[in-house]
Design a protein around this nucleic acid. Structure first.
Lengths: 97, 97
DNA sequence: GAGCGAAATACGGCATTGCCGTATATATGA
DNA sequence: TCATATATACGGCAATGCCGTATTTCGCTC
């Protein structure tokens, strides 16, 4: 373990360069940043409770997100994005149950 | 606080009866049960790492789910269901970023 | 069959969220 | 004004998210 950490740093820098040059794929293609839960819900015209019920969230989670007390997990951010952009597809997928 | 707990139990039973009779809506319309992550991923033909990268999960979460070490959150279960049934819609929604 | 690399399994461990419950505030309509 | 629906605020425990790494299994070539 002489210069293993330095090696790792160099490898990391090389990877960043590769990704930026398009020679490699980033670890996570879709990196969901912060989502505006209230805005997304607002577009659906639903109350917090109804929104949670329709899309399988717990009401508590939606509350915490809109109050900015908690940040939605990566999975939740992705789902919220899909709800925002393809709401009918989400409803179709959930209706089957 | 004499019989407040008994009251609550009775109210709960009444609510269950209402829901089963169709007179009331359950707290969560879509209740995503257990999902078979490996099966869903298998249908996509992706490795754990690629699956995670494509849909915004962390590789660690996918690993934990498939090893049945952790159970995916409600949001993740819903997203996995949507991925299974409307994969193109999910890709479309995520491509915009 | 041996050897190799990719993929998956297994697990320790801390930070963070999920989720529940309840009290308070803020509309909105009768 | 009163009542109801909706949203805000927050304490608190259990559970997952996520990272790191060691080990095992799988698929392939030689």
């Amino acid at each position: 373990m002489t210069n293993t950490n330095i090696d790792r740093i160099l490898a990391g820098l090389a990877e960043v360069a590769d990704i930026e040059a398009g020679r490699a794929a980033p670890a996570r293609l879709f990196r969901p940043g912060a989502v505006d839960v209230r805005a997304i819900r607002g577009r659906t015209g639903l109350t917090q409770a109804a929104f949670a019920a329709q899309f399988g969230f717990s009401a508590a989670a939606v509350r915490d997100w809109e109050q900015r007390r908690r940040e939605p997990e990566a999975s939740a951010r992705v789902l919220l994005t899909v709800i925002d952009r393809e709401p009918d597809a989400v409803r179709r997928a959930l209706a089957h149950t």
